[in-house]
Design a protein around this nucleic acid. Structure first.
Lengths: 249, 249
DNA sequence: AAAAAAATGGGTCAAAAGAACACAATTAGA
DNA sequence: TCTAATTGTGTTCTTTTGACCCATTTTTTT
């Protein structure tokens, strides 16, 4: 075993004693958001060793009375002030020596939040959004966790209203399409994409963008004003129930 | 906290001491197989408290030098003698009091094996296959784990060659169809199903079932002999790469 | 003021995929 | 040899998808 097990020691330093070897449990968050242009992931700069000053996923130890998900929520709030509107577990990382100090098993969550700036939380750590394709090398095995989170996010598109959770309540069709294209890594034809989306019957038409109704910060590009939609979760559930057992590859 | 933490005790009884509260890590296996008729799940009868004599998922503690997956493989082999041809993590269960003795976090795996009888393993526990719809009440939160495993299995059908892993190397189209129907919980038209499967180009035709080539134990029903196919993993990977980023709900 | 550029939206048409169904062929047993 | 059960092939109709054209709106340029 790679880590020292502190056998036969007691007192203040190592007061938690067990009959069999145990592991420390952490919950990490892969926080995604979307600014209308890029898919972003939230990272914090570590303030202490190991991996001091390296960027890492927010997260921390799960308390004895918490589930992993509760721990993830709490840590996210403490470290970044954010509350996730969607939290989804996707895998466990349990390689024995993934943390050099002791055995730490981590449960990473995909957390989706509406985009807003973050200033770092109670732990006073620096927090910043990075476009997913411009992420620096991360601490621990967080590079791998992020990579698998992106795959899981792609798959979740089939089963959860991921894209709508990432968008603001009011959004335009081109915004929605860009988000799909980023997550899936491919392009769609504008017309076909809109037709498909509309035929799903999960969008509510909200009107046309106007000066007083500006849901998107648009660069001053010459263009026609787009229609604005909102996501209808009830209709989505109905649609989902029907198409759940489709037979596809 | 629901469990006792043995503070300030030492000696033989509780020799593993840590600075912070820890958790025990177990790996459980939801072992599926398919006998050509039913989707089966493997259960073992517990020999000790808690939940003595109740049926449960095979599994056990992960050793300090193992990943959760390695632990799952080892436990499965020890308890049932089976080796999984496909092992897939799908979620973590970390409710603080899910085990009455102490805090135990479990990583369940979906394990797919080719069907054969099991006699119980080194731990001398009784092991038995149950049709997934006729499973008795299980120990701990294993009912919930099984339920979520079935959902995860359904979703895996989209991304992994789950059905072919569950089937023997040689199988017939009706067998494949029945398996799809069981996992997805819906019926398909024979003709349409076969056409779709053939058009995917992942099946190799192997011949017609004959007396000497009996891949299926068939009840003596009067019927035409079916064609026999095998699964071509290479072709499947190619097909998968192309269809990975499709845009579906 | 007019023209050009950029972006949205509506629509067409052919090809592909899906759903429903009819019928012929093979095998075991009555 | 007749019947029942089961498998394989084909046909037709409908729906969905993919690849386009073109008109409209808005901003910038000439």
């Amino acid at each position: 075993m790679a880590h020292s097990v502190f056998k036969y020691r007691t007192g203040e330093a190592y007061p938690y004693c067990y009959k069999y070897p145990q592991v420390a449990l952490t919950a990490d968050c892969v926080v995604f958001s979307y600014d209308g242009k890029d898919l972003l992931v939230l990272l914090i700069k570590r303030g202490q060793e190991p991996f001091k000053d390296r960027w890492a996923l927010p997260g921390g130890f799960v308390n004895p009375d918490e589930t992993a998900e509760q721990g993830a929520r709490r840590e996210l709030l403490e470290e970044t002030g954010l509350e996730a509107s969607h939290l989804e577990q996707f895998k466990v990382f349990s390689t024995p020596d993934r943390d050099p100090r002791q055995r730490v098993v981590t449960v990473p969550f995909i957390a989706l939040v509406n985009h807003k700036s973050v200033a770092g939380g109670d732990d006073a750590a620096e927090a910043r959004w990075f476009p997913v394709d411009k992420v620096p090398p991360l601490a621990f095995d967080h590079d791998q966790i992020l990579s698998e989170a992106r795959t899981a996010l792609r798959r979740s598109l089939y089963f959860s209203p991921v894209s709508f959770t990432l968008l603001p309540p009011q959004f335009t069709m081109p915004q929605l399409q860009r988000l799909y294209e980023i997550i899936l890594g491919r392009k769609f034809d504008r017309r076909n994409f809109a037709r498909k989306m509309n035929s799903l019957g999960v969008l509510d038409f909200q009107g046309i963008e106007s000066a007083g109704n500006d849901v998107v910060e648009r660069k001053d590009v010459p263009s026609r004003k787009p229609s604005i939609f909102s996501f209808n979760r009830v209709k989505w559930s109905r649609m989902k129930d029907e198409s759940d057992t489709n037979f596809e590859f």
